[in-house]
Design a protein around this nucleic acid. Structure first.
Length: 857
RNA sequence: GGGCGAGUGGCGGAAUGGCAGACGCGCCGGCCUUAGGAGCCGGUGCCCCGUGAGGGGCGUGUCGGUUCGACCCCGACCUCGCCUACCA
């Protein structure tokens, strides 16, 4: 509270003085929160099959403190829950914690504590802070992913995926520090790529790691027909999946002194029409044939280049000149369409992991190839050009247009053909000879789930010298993380040194064997938690099939835009995998997703502890109350926009709630500072005032309802402010406390209830008590219905434009005809002046007579 | 380099083809007060004319286009933010 001492305010009301209690959120909010808990108002009866509404919001990572960003996601979500309940929905709004992850481990290494202890105490604190929001979370369904009863099922799923061929093992490189082992991307620092802890130079190391075969689902993931995403989200996912259709073309190596030739080199291209212009080939440094094809005299150069690539791989962003580099390997390939020999290079602009890891380079029609050819003096042959252009003219840049109007040149029998048709003809011709076929490639890669870390779900396999990789039998699950953990001051996964954990008998042969020490990516944990919420402690199964069938897909999912491509895509993939192993019947986990924007620090940067710009809501809640903080966050701007945090406007919603308080409890009071006190607005009769209150209340209800449906909180709050302002104007006048007044106050409280649940509950109770009615929560009341008949007004104002410029306004009776309106409009002085004697050429009646535009020449 | 998004008063924002600036912050004036960092009332885009009531002009990043009419749709450009890193 901003004031101390006197908790009442004087209200002089002509005939006497009375006192009403001041609005004191600090007194009201904890009381109602306790009451709601006591009544278990928000424990959802999942067995109740009627009007189910599963509302899901992204569960927090237990970093230690709830910050203002959490409020920005969760309190409007709570408003959705409350709004839906007022529509009779049986709403389920669960909450939990995404317990595993790197920060716990970093804190543990730094302070020599157990990540579990760190996480557990953070969760305890965050539970307390989450309760201050006054949100209707069903805490009885809470899920914490680092509990063995949860991660057991990650392991169980993994074993099913393994059986189904959806999980596999492959060798791939990681960033490796000699002292601290595998490093996550954010643990590699600086342009010289050193370790965040010890500063050692980071290397690449190839490890056998586990993958999930999510690329099998690439095409299906591009089908968004069963999931409603906002456009930018859908586009981002589609770009991330990155489907390209083109052709795979087989080149053969040419014979040379050190190599017999005839080795197949497959390339992927989206421009098979440019095949005749392929004047060299480029292999990725990782390409398996680099070693075999390289000529002896080129070997040292090539090996040096490959090694240099390994050292940088992830790009040094600072030196963005990105001049093309590469080396010739001293071997040629043969272009299958014209039999020409073309030299082969190794260059890092070709990626090992995309397509076939090799390209045919067509410098005339690809910017990167063009740049490379220029630098190495390679021939540039134009094969596609606009109709009528000179085929031999020098190009000063790659010609990459690919519309319908280009024509082939320098392309043997295809010369003169339209390029768009030649694209297919060349692929067909190659296919006939077994030298190519049309092909589709995706940007999306299989999901690497292995992490060389302690604080995650142990991958449930055992390595036996005799039997190889043996899955842990189901009855031995969960493979529990050992509680005693000794980091020994290093980032290296302590499981690799934990003899008690490591050594086991092989489940297959009984011989000595060792456990897998890799743990799972934590995105696994967050890929199915909404199913577990429905049966958080079920001992025998990961999920309750009946409840999953009846309650999912989730009706509405809310969470930050920063998860657009990672979590929101992984979870879709995971759902499809669960479907394919027979656990769920659905194709998509959620029906609708809303991505709200991010709240940045006051400096405009992402909030993070290291930047020191984290905004703590506790202080604001202590000062203004949760209702004000909730309202302010909704009022700031569009929910999907976010933006830098600034508390400078918070007084607005705070004053608004004060005003609502005063209107509700003291309709007859007058403020000594109010010059108009007690008088109706000039020219307004009591009858006018009464219909205006009704009309405004119902119009507000109509508009606010649409705003709630579209999550447009800022305009919703603004409209409630307008209604409160109107009522405030009438306070202390003869219409205050009349039936229309009471109705408007009632509607105002009901409309405000989902957003500001405490103050509305308090006022609702007091008003009921004053009327001698029994208590019932405002949050169990029904959303009111609009009475359209009271909104209709007898007259309305018409703006008058001349040539699109506003010149006048006139008030006319509702239902006036266009002809009558025109006569009135043309008789106006200002219109005559604006016309300046010219005759109207045309008169536009826009929006059914809501605006008139007179066109003159 | 690519993708996505955004540019509107001093500030957050409203209006998504029809009265630009709703609502709020801030600021200015006033009331009430012993006092005001509380509360309440009024004003507030910029410029010009007018003593006044009032009147006029300009204005949504820039330039063009479509339209009776454009903050809104289309094209080009500029600036900022987010995501991403040469995806053949």
């Amino acid at each position: 509270m901003t004031t101390t001492g006197d908790s009442t305010t004087d209200a002089a009301a002509g005939e006497g003085r009375h006192r009403i209690e001041r609005y004191d959120p600090g007194a009201i909010e904890p009381r109602w929160q306790a009451r709601w808990d006591e009544l278990a108002l928000y424990q959802t009866d999942l067995a109740n099959q009627r009007d189910r509404y599963y509302l899901l919001t992204m569960f927090p990572y237990p970093s230690g403190d709830i910050h203002i960003g959490h409020w920005y996601i969760k309190t409007p979500t709570d408003a959705i829950a409350r709004y839906r309940r007022m529509h009779g929905k049986n709403v389920f709004l669960p909450i939990g914690f995404d317990g595993f992850g790197l920060p716990a481990e970093n804190a543990a290494i730094k302070n020599n504590i157990n990540p579990r202890d760190w996480t557990t105490s953070n969760i305890a604190n965050m539970r307390r802070q989450l309760r201050q929001m006054g949100a209707t979370f069903d805490w009885s369904a809470e899920v914490v992913t680092c509990d063995p009863e949860y991660y057991k099922w990650n392991q169980w799923f993994f074993l099913r995926f393994l059986e189904a061929g959806l999980a596999y093992r492959a060798n791939s490189p990681v960033d490796w520090c000699p002292n601290d082992g595998t490093l996550a991307r954010e643990q590699v620092e600086g342009a010289d790529r050193h370790c965040w802890r010890c500063g050692a130079k980071v290397e690449k190391r190839a490890l056998d790691q586990w993958y999930l075969r999510v690329t099998d689902y690439a095409d299906e993931l591009l089908d968004f027909s069963e999931i409603q995403f906002p456009d930018p989200l859908r586009i981002q996912q589609a770009n991330w999946i990155g489907r390209s259709s083109g052709a795979e073309i087989v080149f053969e190596t040419a014979p040379s002194p050190h190599h017999a030739g005839g080795e197949e080199l497959r390339v992927f291209t989206t421009r098979p029409d440019t095949l005749f212009g392929a004047t060299f080939m480029v292999l990725a440094p990782e390409h398996p044939l680099v070693a075999t094809l390289t000529a002896p005299e080129r070997r040292s150069d090539v090996e040096a280049y490959v090694a240099a690539t390994e050292a940088k791989t992830e790009i040094d962003r600072l030196s963005t000149d990105r001049e093309k580099t590469g080396v010739a390997i001293g071997a040629d390939a043969i272009n299958p369409v014209n039999g020409k020999r073309v030299p082969i290079f190794v260059a890092d602009y070709v990626l090992g992991g995309y397509g076939t890891g090799a390209i045919m380079a067509v410098p005339a029609h690809d910017e990167r190839d063009f740049e490379f050819a220029r630098k190495f003096g390679l021939p540039i042959v134009r094969v596609v050009m606009p109709r009528g252009a000179d085929p031999e003219a020098d190009l000063d840049a790659a010609f990459i247009e690919h519309t319908i109007d280009e024509v082939m040149v320098n392309s043997g029998r295809f010369t003169g053909r339209p390029a768009a048709e030649a694209w297919h003809e060349i692929v067909g011709w190659l296919a006939e000879q077994g030298k190519g076929r049309s092909a589709v490639t995706f940007r999306l890669r299989d999901w690497l789930i292995s992490r060389q870390r302690y604080w995650g779900t142990p991958i449930p396999v055992i390595h036996c010298e005799r039997c190889g990789i043996v899955p842990v039998p189901d009855e031995d699950l969960p493979v529990v993380l050992p509680d005693t953990v000794d980091y020994a001051g290093s980032g290296v996964n302590p499981l690799t040194r934990d003899e008690a954990f490591l050594n086991v008998a092989c489940p297959s042969c009984g011989g000595p064997a060792q456990r897998e020490t890799d743990t799972m990516d934590t995105f696994i944990d967050s890929s199915w938690y909404w199913y577990r919420y429905l049966a958080p402690h079920r001992p025998d199964e990961p999920l309750d099939p009946d409840l999953v069938e009846s309650w999912t897909p989730v009706e509405q999912y809310t969470g930050g835009a920063e998860h657009a491509v990672m979590h929101l895509l992984y979870a879709r993939e995971f759902t499809k995998m669960l479907r394919d192993i027979g656990l769920v019947q659905q194709n998509e986990p959620w029906k609708r997703v809303f991505n709200q924007g991010q709240i940045l620090g006051t400096d405009g940067e992402r909030m993070s502890k290291s930047r020191g710009n984290v905004q703590d809501p506790d202080e604001l809640v202590a000062r203004y109350g949760a209702d004000t903080v909730r309202l302010y966050l909704m009022f700031m701007g569009p929910w999907d926009q976010g933006g830098p945090w600034s508390p400078s406007g918070i007084e607005g919603p705070y004053k608004f709630l004060h005003r609502v308080w005063t209107i509700a409890l003291d309709p007859h009071g007058r403020d000594p500072g109010d010059r108009n006190a007690g008088a109706l607005p000039a020219g307004e009769s009591e009858h006018d005032a009464r219909s205006r209150m009704r009309a405004t209340a119902h119009r507000t209800l109509r508009d606010v309802t649409t705003d709630y449906e579209g999550f447009r909180w800022n305009t919703m709050v603004a409209k409630l402010m307008e209604l409160a302002n109107l009522l405030s104007r009438y306070r202390g006048t003869s219409v205050a406390g009349l039936a229309e007044w009471d109705e408007a106050v009632r509607l105002l409280l009901l409309m405000l209830a989902p957003a500001a649940p405490h103050i509305t509950e308090e006022l609702w109770s007091r008003l009921a008590e004053a009327r001698g009615e029994a208590w019932s929560s405002i949050h169990t009341a029904s959303w009111p219905t609009v009475d359209e008949s009271v909104i209709v007004e007898a007259t309305y104002e018409v703006p008058i434009q001349v040539n699109g410029k506003l010149r006048d306004k006139v008030t006319v009776p509702a239902g006036i005809s266009e002809i009558e309106l025109e006569q009135i409009v043309l008789a106006r002085d200002k219109v005559a002046t604006a016309l300046g004697g010219r005759q109207p050429h045309r008169i536009i009646h826009a929006g059914g007579g809501r605006l008139v535009n007179i066109v003159v020449r």
